[in-house]
Design a protein around this nucleic acid. Structure first.
Length: 423
RNA sequence: GGAGAAGUGGCCGAGUGGUUUAAGGCAGCGGUCUUGAAAACCGCCGUACCGCAAGGUACCGUGAGUUCGAAUCUCACCUUCUCCGCCA
C-alpha cells in the first residue's frame, strides 16, 4: 500500500511512475474519495464532540426533567451521526479497496521497460558445461533413472504434479536440508517453520489479495488459503506489531511447500518439474530499517547465489525492469540457472525489496529507541532457492554420458555418502 | 464435537450506565540528590485519524444492538485456558 499523504500530494507523479509498470493504473477516483472521506469525518466528529459535552451535562444534572429538550435533541444528533458514519464507512471501504489494488512504486534504480526483454543482466557466474553428448532434459533423466514419475502423479492428482522415488525423493530432502544449514550457519538467518495454510488478512498483508485470488488454492470452510510462498506467513509473523529497533535487521529462513494454480500459464512449461502446482522452496525473509534495505537486498542476493555456487551450477543475475516487477516489489533481482536440457537460463530465485509497501499493508513497525515514534520497517525476501528447480538444475548440469548423475560434493553428506545416481 | 471460564495500555491489574480525559503498580524515559551508582523523591510515559493551529474524534478481543450517554447492559462471532470425547 502506498502512503495516502504521498499520494494526495504527488498524485500525477505517482501515476506517471506506476505507468512504467505497463499496466493502466488510474487514480482518478482517489482525490474524490479522499475529499469525501475528510468532509464526512469532519462533520461526524464535530457532532460527536457536541454529543459528548451535552451528555456529560445531562449526567451532572440531578433533575432530568430540566434536560428533556437536550436529551431529545441528542437523540436526533445520534441518528445523524449514525448516518454519517455509515456513509463514511462506505467511502473508507472503497478508498481502502482502491489503495489495496495499486502496485508498489518501482525503485528509481530499476531499468525502465515493458517486458522481460528490457531486464538488465548484472553478472554471470560459472560456465555452462560443454557436453560431448546431447544433454537430456530432466524428465527424461529422471524417468530413466526411476526417480521421477509424472504419470502416476497425474493419476493421483493431475497435471503439474510429480512423484519422487528413492534418490529423487532423497535429493529433494537433501537440498532442503543443505540450504537451511547453509543459511542458518553462523546465525545469519533464524529458521522458521510456519503454517502452510493462512487466513485472508495474512494474504492481504503481503499483497496476494485482493488482486490475485485466482492464483491461489483456497479452502472454503474454514476460509483458508494454501501459501504460494513462505514469504506470506513469515512476513506476516509481525503483522500489527511494533518491533524493537535494536533487533533489526531480523533475518529468517523457512522451508515450506508452495501451492500455485498457475492460472494463465496454460501451455507453458507443461513437461517436467519447472512449473508445478506444488513445489518446495527455502525462502529468505528480512525485516530492516528503511535506510538498510538496499544493502540488505545485496546481501540477500549473495546468500541465494552462494547456494548455486556450492552446487556448482552456472547462473546469471538479472535486474528486473519496471514492467517485469511483481505487484508488491520496488526492486527485484532474479537469479537464473543454466539448464542444459533447455539451453537457457531459467529463473530459480527472485530477490525483492518491498520497501514499506508490505509493512504498511500489514502494519509492521519498529521503534528506533524507547519513546520514539513508530516507523514502518522495510521487508525483503528471496528464494534461497526453489528446490524443485534446483533439483532440475543438478540433474541436467551434472548428468553423465551414461545417463547417471554425479552428486555435487556438498550434497553427499546429505545423501548418505552417495556420489552418483545411477539406474 | 460437548461443557465451563476468561479476554482492559509494553506487562500486571482495578473498574457492572455519567468528574474514567481508563485508578494503582511494574518496566521505560527525563530530572533532583550523589564523586559515581543505588535508594528516595518529582515529572513524563499508548496508537491512529482530522485540523494551519488551538484542539477534536476513535480505540478496553471483533462486529452489531439498547441509551441523551457503554470498558460496564444485550446478541453474534473470534481467540485462549480447564475438563470430556476423538486423534498423529
Amino acid at each position: 500500500m502506498l502512503d495516502i499523504r504521498t499520494l494526495r500530494d504527488n498524485l500525477d507523479a505517482t501515476e506517471a511512475r506506476l505507468h512504467t509498470r505497463g499496466e493502466a493504473v488510474t487514480l482518478a477516483s482517489f482525490r474524490d474519495l479522499d475529499g469525501r472521506r475528510r468532509a464526512l469525518l469532519g462533520e461526524s466528529e464535530a457532532l460527536k464532540a457536541e454529543r459528548n459535552s451535552v451528555s456529560a451535562l445531562i449526567g451532572k444534572t440531578k433533575d432530568k426533567s430540566e434536560v428533556q429538550g437536550e436529551m431529545a435533541r441528542m437523540k436526533e444528533v445520534s441518528a445523524r451521526i449514525k448516518e454519517l458514519d455509515e456513509e463514511l464507512r462506505r467511502v473508507e471501504d472503497e478508498l481502502r479497496g482502491l489503495l489495496l489494488t495499486i502496485p508498489n512504486l518501482p525503485d528509481s534504480a530499476c531499468p525502465v521497460g515493458g517486458s522481460e526483454a528490457d531486464n538488465r543482466e548484472v553478472r554471470r557466474w560459472g560456465t555452462p558445461r560443454d557436453f560431448p553428448f546431447e544433454p537430456k532434459a530432466h524428465w527424461d533423466l529422471g524417468e530413466a533413472l526411476g526417480i521421477l514419475d509424472f504419470e502416476r502423479a497425474a493419476k493421483l492428482a493431475g497435471a503439474r504434479f510429480s512423484v519422487g522415488f528413492r534418490a529423487g525423493a532423497r535429493l529433494e530432502r537433501a537440498l532442503i536440508n543443505f540450504m537451511l544449514d547453509l543459511h542458518t550457519a553462523d546465525g545469519r538467518y533464524d529458521e522458521v517453520l510456519p503454517p502452510f495454510l493462512v487466513n485472508r488478512d495474512t494474504m492481504t498483508g503481503t499483497g496476494q489479495l485482493p488482486k490475485f485470488e485466482a492464483d491461489l488454492f483456497h479452502l472454503d470452510e474454514p476460509d483458508y488459503f494454501l501459501i504460494p510462498t513462505a514469504e506470506v506467513p513469515v512476513t506476516n509473523l509481525y503483522r500489527d506489531e511494533i518491533l524493537d529497533g535494536a533487533l533489526l535487521p531480523l533475518c529468517y529462513t523457512a522451508y515450506t511447500p508452495c501451492f500455485r494454480k498457475e492460472a494463465g500459464a496454460h501451455g507453458r512449461d507443461t513437461r517436467g518439474l519447472i512449473r508445478q502446482h506444488q513445489f518446495n522452496k527455502v525462502e529468505l525473509v528480512k525485516f530492516t530499517r528503511p535506510e538498510d534495505s538496499e544493502a540488505e537486498l545485496e546481501k540477500l542476493l549473495n546468500d541465494a547465489e552462494r547456494v548455486l555456487q556450492q552446487l556448482e551450477l552456472p547462473y546469471r543475475v538479472v535486474d528486473l525492469c519496471t514492467g517485469d516487477l511483481g505487484f508488491s516489489a520496488a526492486r527485484t533481482f532474479d537469479i537464473e540457472v543454466w539448464l542444459p536440457g533447455q539451453q537457457a537460463y531459467r529463473e530459480i530465485s527472485s530477490c525483492s525489496n518491498f520497501r514499506d509497501f508490505q509493512a504498511r499493508r500489514a502494519n509492521i513497525r519498529f521503534r528506533r529507541e524507547a519513546g520514539a515514534k513508530p516507523e514502518f520497517v522495510h521487508t525483503l525476501n528471496g528464494s534461497g532457492l526453489a528446490v524443485g528447480r534446483t533439483l532440475v538444475a543438478v540433474l541436467e548440469n551434472h548428468q553423465q554420458a551414461d545417463g547417471s548423475v554425479l552428486i555435487p560434493e556438498v550434497l553427499r553428506p546429505y545423501m548418505g555418502g552417495l556420489e552418483r545416481i545411477a539406474s
